[in-house]
């Protein structure tokens, strides 16, 4: 009799315990699943937000490049071609009167030659294929020469780095060139500098590119403020490209000279 009672008790207690365990399992499944779904949704949201930001960045870059192409074409080729069109129209009238001005035609040929040179420069500026041939230092030197030729700014280049000592891939060099071009563009456009010194140095574990100018002062805080106010797309592009290479950028002003310093670390093989 006592044994029967014990069996009944064990079976009932066992059944109740097992059902309690099942309830616990169900509770765990439901709560974990809820948490898992929330995490998945958050991940998807972040992913989609990042995709949107990337797309915006791509679109902004495209628009900026298109704007630059349009502006360059308008300012250089457009104006030159208008002169050529005007002159040729004039010659047609002169030819009708059997008068041919050889000197004027020669001038137009010169304008056409300049126009072709402008197209070449725009193409170089848009897509620096020549980096493989000329190298990064070569392209910077060429840019310094052009800046000096333009007469807008007095520019000098010095440094310890030679092309062969640069431990960068072509992609990195194009990125660095873009960064350099954007900084120079900002110095000419916004800082109104008349004097620019470029120093390119390489040591055992990092490459530095310093651009010092006598234009409007600009600090890290100014750069940050411009980026927050979304004024400086160029500044964001400089920062993004520098960060892609694992580097950093610093803006400072000292003794009336503003300095932009790009530092790219690298590991020695």
């Amino acid at each position: 009799m006592e044994k029967d009672k014990t069996i009944v008790l064990i079976v009932l207690a066992g059944a109740v315990t097992m059902l309690a365990i099942v309830s616990l399992v169900l509770y765990l499944v439901f709560t974990h699943r809820k948490r898992y779904l929330i995490q998945q949704n958050e991940l998807l949201r972040l992913q989609s937000q990042r995709e949107i930001e990337n797309t915006k960045a791509i679109i902004n870059t495209q628009e900026r490049e298109r704007g630059r192409i349009a502006q360059n074409l308008h300012d250089t080729i457009g104006a030159d071609l208008s002169i050529v069109q005007f002159n040729i129209t004039k010659y047609i009238h002169e030819l009708k009167n059997s008068e041919c001005n050889i000197q004027s035609l020669s001038n137009d040929v010169l304008i056409l030659a300049n126009t072709i040179e402008s197209i070449r420069n725009i193409c170089h500026d848009l897509f620096p294929l020549t980096i493989e041939r000329q190298g990064l230092i070569g392209r910077i030197k060429q840019s310094v020469e052009r800046l000096n030729e333009s007469g807008k700014i007095r520019c000098s280049f010095s440094g310890s780095s030679s092309e062969s000592s640069l431990p960068f891939t072509s992609e990195d060099k194009i990125n660095l060139l873009r960064v350099y071009m954007e900084i120079v563009n900002n110095i000419i456009k916004h800082a109104s500098a008349s004097d620019l010194t470029i120093v390119s140095n390489i040591n055992t574990n990092q490459y530095t590119l310093e651009l010092s100018h006598n234009g409007a002062p600009f600090s890290d805080a100014d750069a940050l403020e411009n980026m927050i106010k979304k004024k400086g797309l160029g500044l964001s592009s400089i920062l993004n490209r520098t960060e892609i290479m694992g580097g950093s950028i610093a803006y400072s002003t000292e003794n009336g000279y503003s300095k932009v310093k790009v530092t790219i670390p690298y590991k020695n093989a």
Binding site: M1, D4, K5, I7, V8, I10, V11, A13, G14, A15, M18, L19, I21, V22
Partner: peptide, 23 residues
Amino acid sequence: FSGVLFVFIFSDIILDSNIDKSV
């Protein structure tokens, strides 16, 4: 199966014809 697990474990006793009705 969680509810009947202990019933199955003791099923040879529970289904014994000589056992008490409560079991």
